[in-house]
Design a binder for these strands. Structure first.
Lengths: 212, 212
DNA sequence: TAGCTTTTTGCACCCCCTCAAAACTTGAGG
DNA sequence: CCTCAAGTTTTGAGGGGGTGCAAAAAGCTA
C-alpha cells in the first residue's frame, strides 16, 4: 500500500505552492501579490493553484489550521481535576514561558500576524475558522458536563475562553510586530494572563472540572 | 444657508441607491445580487454606485453605523454611580424589554442578520467597524479612570463588554432568524443576560464607576 | 504498448473595483 | 438670457479574483 508517485507529487506540488505563496506574502504583502505571480513563481498554471486552494486566502491560512483548534485541543487534553478555563490558562502560560523567538508559539508569529493584520479577508476567514472550532469546544463541554439542550452556559463559557485566548494571542501578535524583545513580550504576556485570570469569575474558573 | 438643489439630489440618490440595494439583498441575498443589478434597479450607472459606496459591503453596512458604536454610546452616556459593565447590562435589558417585533432592537433585525450571516465579507466589515469602535471605548474608559499607559485593564474590560454585547446580539439574531416568537426571544434573552452577568467577575462589574 | 484515470493546462466568461476622460447638471455673475 | 466654473454622472478601458469546460499531459494498469 505504498504511496504512489501520483499522490506524492500531489502533496509536493501543494506544499510547494503554499510555500512559495507564503514567502511572497511575507515579502510583499497579501494584497500586492497576485495569484498569477504565485503561479509563475511556483512554475505552475494559475488553474492548478485554484485546483488546490479554492480561494486566495487559503494559500496562507492552510498552515494555520493547528492554531485555530488549539482551544478545543487544550480543553479536550486537560488532566483530571482541571477545569476548562484552568486548562487554557495553564496552556497559555506554558506556551509563553517555553518559547524562544524561533520555536513554539513565537515561531514566525510576527510574520504571520503582519500578513494577517493587513488583509481584511484573511482576518475574516481566520475568525470564521475559530468560530467553527468554537462549536466543537461547546459540544465537548456539553457532553462532559451533561448540560441540557437549552442550557447556554457551555456557550457562554466557551465564548469567555475564546475571548481570553484571542486577546492574549492578539496582544502578543501586535507586540511581536512592534519588534520588541521576545523576553520582554513573554514577561508582559504572563502579567496579562494573570490579570485576565482575575477578570474571570469563579463560575468560569471552576466550570467543567474533569473528573478523575 | 438653505440646502442647495445639488446637495439635496446627492443625498436623495445616495439614499435611493442604498434603499434599492438593501431591498435586493434582503430579497435575494448579498452574494447573488450584483452591483450592475443594483445600478439598473436604481436607474443609475454602475460607477455612480461606486461613486457613493466604495465597496459592495458599504451598500448594506452604511445604515448600521448606529449599531456598531452602541457600546461606546452606552458607556459614555451612563448616569453617575454606574459602572461600565452595569451600563451595558442595563441598556441591553432595556433594549430587549421595550421592543416589539417592529420597533427598536428588533426592527428589521432578522432580515439584517440573515443577510449578514450568509456573507463572509459583510461579517468581516462589521467586525472591523466594531473593533474600531472598541478603541473609542478603551480611550473613554482610560480617560475616565485615569489609567496609565501600560495598564491593560481598560482593554481587558472593554473586550469583556464587547464579548457580552456581541454574544447577546448574536444570539438574538440567530433566534430571530429562526422565526421564533419575539416575546419568547425577549424572555430568553433576559435570562441569557442574567446568566452572563453572573459570569462577569466583581472586578469587571465594578470597573469604571462614574463619579457624581 | 494500449487504455484508463488523474492532473494539469488554456480558454472563455462573470464579477468587483479603479482610473481617466468625456458629457451633463448646477450655481453664480453679468 | 447667457456664460463660465464647479461639481456630478456617465462612459470606456483595464486589472485582478474566481468558475466551468474541454483538451492535453502525466501517472497507473494490464
Amino acid at each position: 500500500m505504498a504511496e504512489g508517485l501520483r499522490e506524492r507529487k500531489k502533496r509536493q506540488t501543494r506544499q510547494h505552492i503554499s510555500d512559495v505563496a507564503t514567502r511572497l506574502f511575507v515579502e510583499r504583502g497579501f494584497v500586492t501579490v497576485t495569484i498569477a505571480e504565485v503561479a509563475e513563481a511556483a512554475d505552475v498554471s494559475v488553474n492548478t493553484v485554484y485546483n488546490y486552494f479554492p480561494a486566495k486566502e487559503d494559500l496562507f491560512l492552510d498552515r494555520s489550521k493547528g492554531v485555530v483548534d488549539r482551544l478545543s485541543r487544550w480543553v479536550r487534553g486537560r488532566p483530571a481535576g482541571e477545569s476548562a478555563a484552568g486548562a487554557v490558562l495553564r496552556e497559555l502560560r506554558e506556551a509563553v514561558e517555553g518559547c524562544s523567538p524561533t520555536v513554539g508559539l513565537f515561531e514566525g508569529y510576527a510574520d504571520f500576524m503582519k500578513v494577517i493584520t493587513e488583509a481584511d479577508t484573511l482576518r475574516s476567514r481566520l475568525w470564521a475558522l475559530q468560530q467553527e472550532s468554537l462549536l466543537d469546544l461547546v459540544a465537548t463541554m456539553r457532553a462532559e458536563t451533561g448540560a441540557g439542550e437549552g442550557d447556554v452556559l457551555p456557550d457562554l463559557v466557551a465564548g469567555q475562553l475564546a475571548w481570553m485566548h484571542g486577546t492574549v494571542m492578539g496582544w502578543i501578535g501586535t507586540e511581536m510586530v512592534k519588534r520588541r524583545k521576545p523576553a520582554e513580550v513573554s514577561r508582559q504576556a504572563l502579567d496579562l494572563i494573570d490579570e485576565m485570570e482575575e477578570l474571570l469569575s469563579e463560575k468560569v474558573l471552576t466550570y467543567a472540572v474533569r473528573d478523575a
